[in-house]
Computed example of a mutant assay.
Amino acid sequence: MESGDSAGPAAPAAGSQLVRLTLQGQQGPLRNQTALVDKSRSTVTYYVTSQSNLSAVVLYDSRNQGYVCYKPLEQSTCYLRRMEPWDLQTALNTSEQRAEQLPSHNNQTKYYREFLGIVAGQEVNPSRLGEAVQSLCEHSSIFWVRRGQGPGKQRLIYLCIDICFPSNICVSICFYYLPE
């Protein structure tokens, strides 16, 4: 995807399933989320517009080693981490759900905040990544991120991406810079 391209998903390929969600957030404003499942590539791609009107793409690529890739559409940067067992299960659950089974926001919906630290000076070589991540992050710098306890008082939160999964779990993923 070149910078300046449309934020929406491309036409689904054969074997893909496209599901659009409009979610009522905790705070009230609506946010949009579209999930594109591509079983042939073993990927689930979420196109998200958050409450703060920022758009992002979150890619779950379960092929080979498995990666989760975050791409804020207002930036020419991608953030990457290796999949964990919960990520793999989430991707599998999403690919098996039908539109009417996707999350409904009610008292059963669980909200979490997850902090990912951007590892300074740890730019990733795209040639070692799968086709899906290379395609999403074409013409972008790619940096490793890792889970953290939060930015602490001395670090500011850089950006947050809100995403909801079929398991009625919504996660606000917030990025901050780690010390070198």
Rank of each mutant, 00 (worst) to 15 (best):
V37C: 15
I118N: 00
P29Y: 09
Y70C: 10
L102S: 10
R82D: 05
P85H: 03
L30S: 13
W86F: 14
G15K: 03
C174H: 13
N64L: 03
V124Q: 02
S62K: 09
S104Q: 14
W86H: 13
Y46A: 00
S141G: 09
R82A: 04
S55W: 01
N64F: 04
S62E: 03
S52D: 15
E74Y: 12
A13V: 02
L80N: 01
E84V: 12
A120N: 05
S104H: 14
Y158H: 08
S141D: 11
R31L: 14
E138H: 11
S167W: 00
T22N: 11
V37I: 15
C137E: 04
A91P: 01
C69H: 05
Q101A: 15
S40F: 03
R82V: 03
Y177V: 05
K71C: 13
Y79E: 09
A120Q: 13
K110N: 04
E100A: 11
Q51H: 03
R82H: 07
L159S: 14
S42R: 11
S52T: 15
Q108C: 01
Y111N: 07
G8C: 05
E74S: 15
I173A: 14
C164F: 04
Y47N: 05
G152M: 00
N107R: 14
S40C: 07
L102F: 07
L23A: 05
P166M: 04
P9A: 10
A10Y: 07
R113G: 01
A10V: 02
K71E: 07
N106F: 06
Q33M: 12
A7W: 08
S3I: 06
I161S: 10
V171Y: 08
S172H: 09
D87H: 13
H105L: 13
Y46P: 04
Q27E: 12
I169P: 02
P85N: 09
L18I: 09
R147C: 02
F175C: 04
Q134C: 01
V124C: 08
D5K: 15
L59P: 07
R63T: 15
F143K: 03
L80F: 02
T45R: 11
E114K: 13
L88G: 08
H139Y: 08
K39H: 09
C69G: 08
R113Q: 10
G28V: 10
P9S: 06
Q26W: 07
L92A: 08
R81D: 10
G121T: 00
T77I: 09
V119F: 01
I157V: 15
S6T: 12
E138N: 14
A132Q: 04
G117E: 02
V119W: 00
Q101G: 15
L116H: 07
S141T: 11
